[in-house]
């Protein structure tokens, strides 16, 4: 008996949807890593290296630290969380969602004052900020983004906070802040050093001295889930290895 083609097509569809939605975590030795967007591309390189060195596979989920945190609280199936700050991992531990004692700084962020030029020829320094001969300085929103909070502290250290008040524009995160400067809309911006490495302009602008702001500590933490624990442990230890630290440093971060 032949079924009408419409019905058969529908059945095929149902099977396709069922297959497509079957959980990938069913595979053994896979670690699902939730990673802050600013670290996503270096995390891919790290995952490749880790997969080559071990039998484990890594699945990356990128998002903002705040959103990933909210998803983890609601039971998202992640094994490791690489946050862009130290606050969210600490809260997850105290809320019983992350393994106590597993928190570890995997990278320290640095800020660069940047004018959007990728040739690295424009000389920049704090005197440019003090001169005020620019329209807009883009920083990440200090209330939302760790790089924004650090940028705010830099302005306080340089005693320029009040003078520049009318010139500040805010990106929702460091990625949008970079876009505001790169697109030429803001003449200056305090962006992440790692972003300029990725853009092939690692020495562009002025590297803000680390004494100008509290350290931007990006912490990783092991999440409390039953499956995949061994692979997750292995991935976190790998992040502290010399190999991984060299990769992280080359990407424009400092390592502890």
């Amino acid at each position: 008996m032949t079924r009408p083609p419409g019905k058969r097509r529908f059945a095929t569809w149902l099977i396709f949807c069922a297959l497509a939605s079957s959980p990938a975590q069913a595979l053994a030795d896979e670690v699902v890593v939730a990673v802050a967007s600013n670290f996503a591309s270096i995390a891919e390189a790290l995952a490749d290296r880790f997969e080559a060195e071990s039998d484990h596979a890594v699945n990356l989920v990128a998002g903002s630290t705040g959103k990933l945190y909210a998803q983890i609280l609601r039971g998202a199936p992640f094994d490791v969380f690489l946050a862009a700050d130290a606050l969210r991992p600490r809260r997850l531990v105290s809320e019983g969602r992350a393994v106590e004692g597993s928190r570890r700084v995997y990278a320290l962020g640095r800020l660069r004052l940047w004018s959007g030029d990728t040739d690295g020829v424009a000389a920049l320094g704090p005197e440019r900020l003090a001169s005020g001969d620019f329209r807009h300085l883009a920083i990440a929103n200090p209330a939302l983004a760790p790089y924004g909070a650090a940028a705010h502290q830099v302005l306080q250290t340089l005693a320029l906070e009040e003078r520049l008040e009318g010139r500040l524009v805010f990106g929702e995160n460091i990625g949008q802040t970079y876009a505001l400067v790169a697109s030429g809309n803001a003449e200056l911006g305090l962006v992440a050093a790692s972003q300029l490495v990725e853009a092939g302009a690692s020495s562009a602008g002025w590297l803000v001295p680390r004494s100008h702001h509290a350290p931007i500590r990006q912490e990783g933490v092991l999440l409390s889930r039953e499956e995949g624990l061994e692979a997750a442990h292995a991935f976190l230890s790998f992040l502290a290895s010399d190999d991984a630290r060299r990769l992280i440093e080359a990407a424009g971060y400092e390592v502890p």
């Binding site: 883009a138 524009v169 949008q176 876009a179």
Partner: peptide
Amino acid sequence: VLMVGGNI
């Protein structure tokens, strides 16, 4: 507006 406004 988030993209072009600058959240001022």
